[in-house]
């Protein structure tokens, strides 16, 4: 999967067709797709962007096969987390925290997200937990996890909404 995605990454541009995404993206900086991954035993292959938002906000607790959904997040400050909060949850860090504290308190949300320090940790967590869902850069994806289509698009497809800006080193 990584070998397929990397050439696409080089050819990708900031000219996304999605208005919501493009509104956050700096048109002058290159972007990289963020891959949504689930356990290989998970029957789900595709999610709509709205379903993805509901999952990441804890509003959906179980998969169609009855497995509890376990959300896997990177630590605050990581670029991937920022991108998900910005593009998927449309929240900043504080809003996201408050959302979950409130949800857990009221019982609307059953489980708080699991925080992993590294992309490898995310990948291994998703591999070990059948109901886990997380996000990885293209280069961190391997066969131990399954990539989920978002709005019927794979990360290397044109129009894929979930992209993060690459910080260029000066």
């Amino acid at each position: 999967m990584a070998t397929v995605l990397i050439p696409l990454l080089q050819g990708s541009s900031a000219t996304s067709g999605n208005a919501a995404a493009s509104s956050f993206a700096d048109q002058t900086n290159p972007t990289e797709p963020l891959v949504i991954v689930v356990n290989r035993s998970n029957p789900v292959n595709e999610l709509s962007f709205d379903e993805l938002r509901r999952i990441f906000l804890g509003n959906r607790s179980h998969w169609p096969n009855g497995r509890r959904i376990t959300l896997v997040m990177r630590e605050p400050g990581e670029l991937e987390r920022k991108t998900v909060l910005r593009d998927v949850c449309a929240m900043n860090e504080d809003q996201f925290k408050n959302h979950f504290v409130h949800g857990l308190f009221t019982g609307e949300i059953l489980v708080s997200p699991k925080i992993l320090a590294s992309p490898v940790g995310v990948r291994k967590f998703v591999f070990n937990v059948p109901g886990a869902i997380g996000y990885l850069r293209v280069g961190d994806v391997d066969d131990s996890v399954k990539v989920v289509r978002i709005d019927e698009l794979l990360p290397d497809d044109k129009g894929y909404k979930l992209r993060m800006q690459i910080q260029l080193a000066n």
């Binding site: 376990t70 070990n128 937990v129 059948p130 886990a132």
Partner: peptide
């Protein structure tokens, strides 16, 4: 073991 491990990682 896999089920137990998954439950532990899920926090259950």
């Amino acid at each position: 073991r896999d089920e137990v491990l998954a439950s532990i990682l899920e926090g259950s």
